[in-house]
Amino acid sequence: MDDRTPAIRVHGLRKSYKEVEVLKGVDFEVARGSIFALLGSNGAGKTTTVRILATLLKADDGTAVVNGFDVAAEAQRVRESISLTGQFAAVDEILTGRENIIMIARLRRVDEPGKIADDLLDRFGLTEAAGRRVGTYSGGMRRRLDIAMSLIGDPPIIFLDEPTTGLDPEARIEVWKVIEKLADGGTTVLLTTQYLDEAEKLADRIAILHRGRIIVDGTLAELRKLLPPAKVEYVERQPTLEEIFLAIVGEKGQS
């Protein structure tokens, strides 16, 4: 597939739960091998969007194409192209780290599950802890193991739905390094987060989802142009992503 073709293309996506309209016509594209951050407050519709893209939920209207496959018409092909990691690590605490990976590798019927486990443990800095029960792992280690397990089969696209929720600052930095390595290796990452510093640190492109709509979509440099730089003691200071987010969401909330 042409590298210039977007890994993900979303157009006019709508979803309602009874009388509540969660997505009101969402549009965005994600370039291959990039980190795309879908930024928004709780209830903005981030997880709903990811669930539709991962074929776990059907949209009421609009189209979504993932790795060249329509999520509604070619759901199985989409599932073969992606991996999804949610807000809480889906690991078995009784098993060791290595046993967790081997179990998933066998379920996915990949060859040489032991070799795959050893390679992933090494890649994510978990070799020394491979023989320990996951119940003894720190939050950051569990999240790294969870992401490692999601990469079995080398999916070209990975969805990370608020992957650092509940982690302490040190563990968050551990996960950030893992995400950066994924993109460096050519994996396309769609990251949902409510942490502004996370999007600012990781994303090649940022979309702000507010009240069911994308209200801004661009690089951090492009978003910074939306607000004038502050001048303090004759030194120009660029606005932070937090300042941009609050200014834009505040304006939309008043309209």
Rank of each mutant, 00 (worst) to 15 (best):
M1E: 11
R172D: 07
T187W: 00
V175K: 03
A7S: 13
V50P: 03
G218W: 06
T49P: 04
Y195C: 03
T136V: 15
L246V: 12
A171H: 06
P163N: 10
E170T: 15
V20T: 14
K177W: 00
D111Y: 11
D60P: 09
V26Q: 12
S81V: 01
D70H: 09
I158V: 15
E198M: 01
E128F: 09
V91E: 02
A230V: 07
F245K: 03
E93A: 13
I82V: 01
A130M: 01
T136S: 15
V50T: 03
L167A: 06
G140Q: 01
R51M: 14
E236Y: 05
L126S: 07
R79C: 00
F159R: 10
A230F: 01
K18I: 12
L53S: 05
I214D: 12
D122R: 08
I147T: 03
L160H: 01
G68V: 11
V26C: 14
T193Q: 07
V91S: 06
A64L: 10
D168Y: 05
L160F: 05
P229F: 06
I52H: 11
V232W: 05
M149P: 07
S81T: 04
A90L: 09
S34D: 10
I8K: 10
L226C: 04
G253E: 11
L120V: 04
E162V: 13
G135F: 10
R32D: 01
A54E: 06
T127S: 11
K15P: 12
A31C: 05
E80Y: 00
A129Q: 04
V216D: 08
I215V: 13
R98E: 14
A89Q: 00
Q87E: 09
R109C: 10
E80L: 02
E242D: 06
H210C: 04
A117F: 11
